[in-house]
């Protein structure tokens, strides 16, 4: 039936567009999971009042401003601070005590988007009296998201929810100690940023940039197809020292990936894994 023909054509148009974007700008969305991507391309069509994805090709390849807007639309994820509080509780109780056995710890928040997760982690490390021995690398491919992350200013309307989450993490203080409210925004304390480096890194195209003890990458892989997930998980396996920890989102899994044997589960419920020693190559922490 013709709907299925339409879908086939749409697939072709999508591939042409993504190939064009990759070769024109170097941003590689070719292995993004197609179902979410399709919704985002529909948004582009509405935005530019176009009927076909192929009509987006000239717009996005020639008009830098339109492409910048597209990049923004591609990272419109919505997350919270201390999302899934039980995960942070387990990080506190099961992971940080092990990290403390290393003299100095490097942490990678991969695909940090607008930074909610990074500040959540910094607060946790501070409360565990460990932050001064940590360096956090917070990376994202989207410079605009990174700029928001660096500013560390979030809507006051969200603070109530963040506070409720924080209180469920085994908190040792009051969430209000970590931000200043001004107008309708809450600005995270400058002190939290002292051991964070924000930088540009694209998981789809860039490689290892340091040996890590902990990698946090929650709800990022869900946007990738299995091939790209495998690529990124290989990258994480190569970046982690032996015994290093990998934290994925609660509904993500190594189960269908190529690195399932490289990691041992620490918490199945919260998807915390540890790189096993036997298969580790090179130096250890």
């Amino acid at each position: 039936m013709h709907r299925q023909e339409d879908e086939k054509t749409k697939r072709l148009e999508t591939e042409l567009l993504l190939e064009g974007i990759f070769r024109r700008y170097g941003y590689d969305f070719r292995h993004y999971a197609r179902a979410s991507l399709a919704r985002r391309l529909d948004l582009q069509l509405r935005r530019h009042k176009l009927a076909h994805i192929s009509a987006l090709i000239p717009v996005l390849l020639h008009d830098q401003a339109a492409f910048d807007l597209f990049l923004q639309d591609m990272s419109i994820t919505v997350t919270d601070m201390f999302r899934n509080p039980h995960f942070f509780q387990e990080l506190r109780e099961k992971v940080i005590p092990k990290l403390k056995t290393w003299p100095y710890v490097k942490i990678w928040c991969a695909g940090c988007a607008t930074g909610e997760e990074v500040y959540s982690l910094a607060i946790l490390l501070q409360e565990e009296n460990f932050y001064d021995r940590c360096q956090i690398y917070a990376t994202d491919y989207n410079n605009r998201s990174l700029a928001i992350a660096k500013d560390g200013i979030y809507g006051l309307d969200k603070i109530k929810n963040y506070t409720a989450n924080y209180n469920k993490t085994g908190a040792k203080g009051s969430f209000a100690d970590y931000y200043h409210a001004k107008y309708d925004g809450a600005k995270m304390n400058e002190g939290l940023k002292r051991n964070i480096v924000f930088s540009h890194h694209n998981l789809a195209t860039d490689s290892v940039f340091g040996e890590m003890n902990l990698i946090l990458c929650r709800n990022v892989l869900i946007y990738f197809d299995q091939d790209l997930q495998n690529r990124v998980l290989d990258l994480y396996a190569a970046s982690l020292c032996a015994g290093g920890f990998l934290c994925l989102g609660a509904k993500e899994s190594l189960q269908f990936s190529s690195v399932v044997d490289t990691f041992d589960p620490v918490s199945r419920k919260n998807n915390i894994y540890r790189k096993n020693y036997a298969r580790a190559e090179g130096g250890h922490g």
């Binding site: 999971a33 179902a35 979410s36 985002r40 419109i76 197809d225 509904k251």
Partner: peptide, 19 residues
């Protein structure tokens, strides 16, 4: 807290796009 979608490969995928 997640959208649930079906991929053309017959697998399920999730997203944290806005509500």
């Amino acid at each position: 807290g997640y959208h649930l979608l079906v991929e053309e490969t017959g697998t399920l995928s999730l997203s944290v796009d806005p509500p």
